[in-house]
């Protein structure tokens, strides 16, 4: 076989493997990048796609949840929300599952067990902050007795040149800043005196902000994660 024939056979096989889907992630990415630039490779892949397509008769249809089309249409056709309407999007926290709440409670219990037992105010609030389309996950634990809010970033980070800002939201009030999350994975933030008794049933939220935090005192960027404070 000539070198050209060998290369052609190699491409033919890669096209088949890509169409079939068996390649490891890195090889798939590399092949997909080649597809953009190489019409011959595209033709080979399309050919395999067409042949293999006949096998898809064996795949049973299934009904996705009924509101999915609405979600897709919103994503495609609803203009990006203005900063003023940011607040209304906080309804997403209501979608927090019981499972993630259970995680927060468990993690909270772990914290509590590490704490020296003493007299006085033993109230503790925990929350797991997460978002549907964001990798950011943070567990927060707050004790009114000390006014210390411990945050543990278990996943995700701010984008380069951006900051993650933490907000406290009570009922339908405007968000109040609790400060910018430090780069460290876990941190203890001191809550201002006038906010210390305002965590009951409150929601915490994290938004994407310019370095140093929101210039306006209100969230300006996307909401990355939210979670309800739960007393444990």
């Amino acid at each position: 076989m000539s070198t050209d024939d060998k290369r052609d056979e190699r491409d033919e096989l890669l096209a088949a493997e890509y169409a079939l889907g068996v390649l490891p992630h890195a090889e798939r990415q590399a092949f997909a990048a080649r597809l953009e630039k190489e019409p011959d490779l595209r033709r080979k892949t399309e050919n395999w796609d067409q042949h293999l397509f006949e096998l898809s008769d064996e795949i049973d249809p299934a009904a996705p949840r009924s509101d999915l089309l609405g979600t897709i249409e919103d994503r495609l056709f609803t203009p990006a929300p203005q900063p003023v309407s940011w607040w209304s999007s906080l309804g997403v926290w209501r979608g927090l599952t019981a499972a993630s709440l259970a995680v927060a409670v468990t993690l909270g219990a772990l914290y509590i067990n590490q704490r020296p037992v003493g007299p006085g105010d033993a109230r503790t609030y925990v929350s797991e902050l997460a978002g549907e389309n964001s990798p950011v996950r943070v567990v927060a634990l707050y004790e009114p007795a000390t006014g210390i809010l411990k945050v543990n970033r278990i996943q995700g980070a701010s984008a380069t040149g951006r900051a993650l800002e933490l907000w406290l939201i009570e009922g339908s009030n405007k968000p109040v800043s609790l400060g910018v999350l430090p780069a460290a994975q876990s941190a203890s933030l001191s809550v201002a005196n006038d906010l210390r008794e305002r965590f009951e049933d409150a929601v915490l939220a994290i938004s994407d902000e310019p370095e140093g935090g929101s210039p306006t005192g209100q969230p300006t960027g996307a909401v990355l994660a939210t979670g309800k404070m739960t007393k444990v």
Binding site: G21, S56, I59, D60, P61, A62, A63, P64, L68, L69
Partner: peptide
């Protein structure tokens, strides 16, 4: 969508 969901679900 039902067929395409079936494809995604199977994988």
């Amino acid at each position: 969508s039902a067929k395409l969901f079936g494809v995604c679900l199977r994988v």
